[in-house]
């Protein structure tokens, strides 16, 4: 293995060969927002204000785009309605087991109760701090076997119907991946217009030493492939169906 210094020295050497030769393109640093926390907090504030001003329109755009991206959209009205909508979907698809994350939305939408009334057990994918190793293995098994994965989202991009989920304590990477069906509960405050908006809001949180998050999943459609004769098939490795339960 080459050392970092040797590798970079070679890169520097190569770059020096091109300096001052007419062909190499001019490479000015593109104009940017200064990389300081106040500048980005200001930027985030402006994004938030813009989103708030166009919220109604944004929610409609999201619903339309989600349909185009093959999400099944259910407009639930209230958190209670969302929980019932989840139970209804579970019954419709004949799910016998479900897993969920510990997203704050579940404090408002009692999904577990609604599923229990329908006779469907729902496991929370959060390990036991007394026995992390063993419980992690057990939960992984549950996630792999579950018929249904239910999650909240951290951001939802209207332009491309992209749900953004940050993995963390209580938010398993697998909940939205291994079950054949994924249901995402979305609240109005999470909806942004573009991916750039989501990245701005997130950056204002981690800039200057904070953690950008170990794992962000951007989910915009069911799992799909066109690898055999360019024919689209859904549900290759991830979910074959994705549901957007709109809590508004």
């Amino acid at each position: 293995m080459t050392s970092r210094e040797a590798f970079l020295a070679q890169v520097r050497y190569a770059l020096r060969q091109t300096r001052g030769k007419g062909h190499a393109p001019a490479a000015e640093d593109p104009p940017r927002i200064p990389n300081t926390l106040p500048a980005w907090q200001l930027e985030a504030e402006q994004v938030r204000r813009r989103l708030l001003a166009q919220r109604e329109d944004l929610l409609l755009r999201l619903e339309r785009m989600a349909g185009l991206m093959n999400w099944k959209v259910v407009r639930a009205g209230t958190p209670q309605g969302a929980a019932e909508a989840v139970a209804q979907i579970a019954q419709q698809v004949g799910a016998r087991s479900a897993v969920r994350t510990a997203h704050p939305v579940f404090a408002r939408a009692p999904v577990e109760d609604a599923l229990r009334s329908a006779g469907i057990p729902c496991i929370l994918l959060a390990y036991d701090a007394h026995d992390p190793q063993e419980s992690r293995l057990r939960l992984r098994q549950s996630a792999i076997q579950a018929h249904l994965g239910i999650t909240g989202v951290d951001y939802m991009v209207a332009e491309t119907a992209t749900a953004i989920l940050l993995a963390r304590r209580g938010v398993s990477r697998l909940a939205s991946l291994t079950p054949p069906r994924h249901i995402a509960l979305v609240e109005p405050e999470q909806v942004v217009e573009t991916l750039a908006d989501a990245l701005t809001l997130h950056k204002a949180q981690f800039l200057e030493g904070g953690d950008p998050g170990g794992y962000l999943s951007l989910i915009s459609a069911p799992s799909r492939t066109g690898d055999i004769e360019q024919t689209i098939v859904v549900g290759v490795h991830g979910p074959q169906e994705v549901y957007l339960v709109a809590v508004w």
Partner: peptide, 11 residues
Amino acid sequence: RISSYVTFVTG
């Protein structure tokens, strides 16, 4: 418009 999945991994 975007692929079904994009994943950002940091460490």
